[in-house]
Structure formats: C-alpha cells, structure tokens
C-alpha cells in the first residue's frame, strides 16, 4: 500500500452520468491503484498506484513542447516517433499542460475528499429523480482506505446513495469500517480455481471469498459480478463454483455475468501497458451470454 499525500486520494477520473456502475444515474470516482493485475482489465490505467502519462499518438503534432517542459527528460523524439521514458516520470503533469495538441493526458491526480464530492454533487438533482448517487470504483477503492472512508462518510452524511465496486482484495477491517456507509457492493468474482485465479489476476481468491462471506453475514447488499472471458474462465467448473456461492449466500441480490468486452483495449496503447496482457480470439456476443446464464441457472437450480 502506498502513502497518501496530505489526506488526498489518487484518482484517475470522475465520470458523470454513469448508468452501468450500479443502479440509476450515478457519478463514478475511479481510484487509482489495484493489488490485482487481471489479464483482461479494461481500466489498465487504474492498476499502478502512481500518476501516469498517456499519449494519443494520432493527436501529437510533434511540437516538442513536452520535451522542453519536462525537467526529467521523459519525452524523446526519435525515428521511432515520440517515446516516453516512463521510469523517470514523476507525474507532475507539466507536460500535459504544455501540450497544444491535447495528445497528452495524465491518469492520476491527487484530490481531497471534499473536492471529489463537490464534483459528484453537481448532479445531485439527477440522483434525486433517478435514485442514483455515487459509485466508487477503480482500480481498487479499498486500496486507499483512509481516503475511501472519508469520502464515503462525507457522502453518506448528506444522504447520498453510495456504491462500492471492489475486487474484494483487502483487509477485512477495511470492510468493517466502510460497511455502514455502503448501500450496495458491486463485488467481483473472477475465478473459482485458485491456481488459475493466481495465474489470471496475480493473487489468490481465498481472501476474496472470505471477505464476501464476511460482508454478507454483516448485512451488506451485494451484487456479484463475474467477468466471463472465453478460453479462460468460461468453464463448467467455474459456473458451478459461482452457482455454489449463489446457493450458499442466498441473500446475494444478484449474480451478473459480464461477457468480456474488448472495448477498453485502446487504453493499453495510450499508456503503453503490456499489450500481450491477453490474446483473446473470440469476442462473446449476446448469444454467449444467454448460454452462460442458462448454464449458471441450471447449476443453481440443480441443487435445490
């Protein structure tokens, strides 16, 4: 875990008008930094707990402003084009401001809970009419516990509906602390087989499952979200595993299968995050989802 700057949190985006991160119209605050490293991550810029420079090559006009601005010689222009020496970048953002092509962006800025909340509250009238509110996502929100607690506490004190989207990978005591503020958890479950879980995400699923049991037994409302990636976890034993959890934890509000979607891939280019992360040949369509859902429902129903 990394230290927080002056009670500030590191976030990489605040996105308004989100209709897929929890019920109704919401604003999502994306925390940066994640203990997992999923092969299929669609917010790869959320993984590293440091600010990162992103470059849209097609917008760069090669003016060289960034090179002149940067004190750390991060930007270099060679025959191979505009190269970024990421290890020297301290994430100060100076080059981004100097970029006249709007080709550079920075993922990650330090904000106070008050400032983040202020932005979230701009859409308060929309939450009132839709039942929506704030969603905290990432990265992994529980990776920055102090900031998370402060943000949730402040949001809750003014009656905002709060969702937390989590990988479940965190110390139990953090869950204990935030339970009182969270209206709904969007809880990821990625792989039943722990060996494979480690292979795909870099960590064991034991703690994740433990935490899930723990928050449910403490009365949390939870939606389980299971990304299904063809060739990786679209296996019967995994669907069986999900079904078992469903049966065991019957107060789970919903189990949602999320077919893998390649549409976050261009961010890998922009932030030069290893493109070999995942080679997926088959992109699921609506039909896949239907078959998977039927399978899952059969497994769930089969034992009852």
């Amino acid at each position: 875990m990394f230290s927080q700057k002056e009670n500030k949190g590191l976030i990489f985006d605040i996105q308004r008008f989100c209709v897929h991160d929890g019920p109704d119209i919401r604003t999502t605050v994306f925390f940066k930094g994640c203990p997992l490293n999923c092969l299929w991550c669609h917010n790869p810029e959320g993984i590293s707990p440091r600010p990162e420079i992103g470059l849209k090559n097609n917008l760069c006009i090669g003016c060289g402003n960034c090179q002149r601005t940067c004190a750390n010689k991060v930007h270099n222009f060679t025959d191979a084009g505009h190269l970024i020496d990421r290890k020297n970048c301290i994430g100060c953002g100076a080059c981004v401001k100097s970029c006249i092509g709007k080709a550079l962006s920075i993922a990650g800025k330090y904000v106070s809970a008050d400032d983040a909340l202020k932005e979230v509250l701009r859409d308060i009238t929309f939450y009132k009419n839709s039942g929506g509110g704030m969603t905290v996502s990432g990265g992994e929100p529980l990776f920055q516990p102090a900031f998370l607690v402060e943000l949730l506490q402040k949001a809750k004190s003014i009656g905002l509906n709060c969702c937390v989207e989590t990988s479940g990978m965190a110390e139990q005591k953090i869950f204990t602390e935030i339970l009182q503020y969270v209206d709904l958890f969007l809880y990821d479950f990625k792989e039943t087989n722990d060996v494979l879980h480690k292979k795909y995400t870099g960590v064991s699923n034991k703690k994740i499952i433990e935490n899930l049991r723990y928050i449910i037994s403490n009365g949390a409302r939870v939606r389980l979200r299971c990304p299904i990636i063809p060739g990786f976890n679209d296996r019967d034993d995994h669907f069986q595993g999900i079904a078992e959890i469903r049966r065991e934890l019957n107060s789970l509000e919903e189990v949602e299968l999320l077919p893998y979607n390649p549409l976050g891939l261009n961010k890998y280019e922009r932030f030069e995050i290893n493109l070999n992360h995942l080679e997926i040949s088959k992109i699921p369509d609506g039909n896949n989802k239907k078959i998977w859902t039927e399978k899952l429902n059969n497994y769930i129903g089969g034992a009852s």
Binding site: C18, D21, H42, L258, N261, N266
Partner: peptide
C-alpha cells in the same frame, strides 16, 4: 464502450 460510455472518437 465496455462498461462505460465514452466519446466515439476516443476509440481506436
């Protein structure tokens, strides 16, 4: 796009 909405031109 994916689980979020985004500007069309931002996509490759």
């Amino acid at each position: 796009v994916a689980g979020f909405t985004d500007y069309f031109i931002n996509q490759n």
